[in-house]
């Protein structure tokens, strides 16, 4: 029983970062019907920039309460600028082209960022441990230490939850959110109703990238920082977004948590010889879901009018 609870905690903690990345996929898809395959690399840049920010802040402050907000907010800023630039330089000029062209451009951006990060001047190919700004330490545990909740779990779940609340409010309670919903329903028409769609698209990319930056920061602290670290979480978050129903915001959250849980449960309960297949399970899940429910859990079936 204790083991199950522990696995659930781990699963939610991992799943929360998938959810944060999946939100970026789903928001962009909701507006442009585009899978932004460079999104995993935005997460990687989030990790890299929080690494450098942590190094820098540790040079002049020992206080975690000063350093951590700077690291988190700083990497969010870096990534939202990156997200803006990716859209502006690689996708916007192709707006009127077939969607496949933009998709290829997205894959190009992804490869570019992966390889840029391997330049020793920028980061280098070797994995680096996150600076000792914050260490994983238990904050809640039972007497036997069989159930442990670490500060990283709290950080991961707390940040994700908080950001989700903010995001729901932005989408449902602000003028930008109203325009965002309108654009996602009818792109061309919203333009004719006076919505500056270019600005809404930029906003969407910046917002989604900032969320990916938070996921990158959490995983940088939890694991390490590598130029190719965006590949697998990026793919898994994409699966999570499809699972929840791509274009759906609650779907991305549920999908992300589901992916995290399935991963840790497979690792925790399959014989150790098979734990290497935990990732394979994720992709088998994707295939099964697409077969059974092509629009995902929360996906809307949109009949196309001719």
């Amino acid at each position: 029983m204790d083991q199950l609870i522990q696995q659930l905690i781990n699963g939610l903690s991992v799943g929360a970062t998938y959810a944060l990345i999946a939100l970026g996929y789903t928001m962009v898809y909701g507006i442009l019907r585009l899978i932004n395959f460079a999104h995993g690399e935005v997460y990687m840049v989030g990790a890299v920039s929080s690494y450098y920010l942590a190094e820098w802040t540790m040079g002049w402050t020992g206080s975690l309460w000063v350093a951590l907000p700077i690291v988190v907010v700083g990497s969010m800023l870096v990534c939202s600028i990156l997200g803006f630039l990716i859209e502006f330089l690689a996708y916007r000029p192709l707006r009127d082209r077939p969607r496949l062209v933009v998709l290829i451009s997205a894959i190009g951006v992804s490869l570019l960022l992966q390889n840029l990060a391997q330049f020793p001047e920028l980061f280098g190919p070797t994995p680096r441990r996150f600076p000792a700004l914050i260490q994983s330490t238990p904050v809640f545990y039972n007497a036997a230490h069989t159930i442990v909740l670490t500060n990283l779990d709290v950080l991961s779940l707390g940040l994700t939850l908080g950001l989700m609340v903010i995001m729901t409010w932005v989408v449902l309670g602000t003028k930008t959110g109203l325009a965002l919903r309108a654009v996602s329903f009818r792109f061309d028409t919203s333009m004719l109703m006076g919505i500056n769609t270019g600005r809404i698209i930029s906003f969407t990319f910046m917002f989604g990238s900032a969320l990916a930056a938070v996921a990158g920061t959490i995983d940088a602290i939890r694991y390490d920082v590598r130029p190719l670290m965006g590949l697998l979480p990026g793919l898994k978050a994409f699966v999570a977004a499809v699972l929840g129903g791509i274009g759906s915001i609650p779907g991305a959250v549920v999908g992300g948590l589901f992916m995290g849980l399935s991963e840790t449960l497979v690792k925790g309960y399959l014989p150790s010889a098979y734990t290497g297949y935990a990732d394979a399970v994720a992709f088998v899940l994707l295939i099964v879901i697409l077969l059974v429910r092509p629009t995902g859990l929360f996906g809307r079936v949109a009949p196309e009018k001719v």
């Binding site: 003028k175 109203l178 325009a179 309108a182 329903f185 009818r186 919203s190 109703m193 006076g194 919505i195």
Partner: peptide, 24 residues
Amino acid sequence: FQNIRLFAGMSVLDNVLVGFNQSL
């Protein structure tokens, strides 16, 4: 529009607010 192009999944009020909001 010739064939109706409302923001179909949004409320009637929100459809109209989209128009007003651009002048905020």
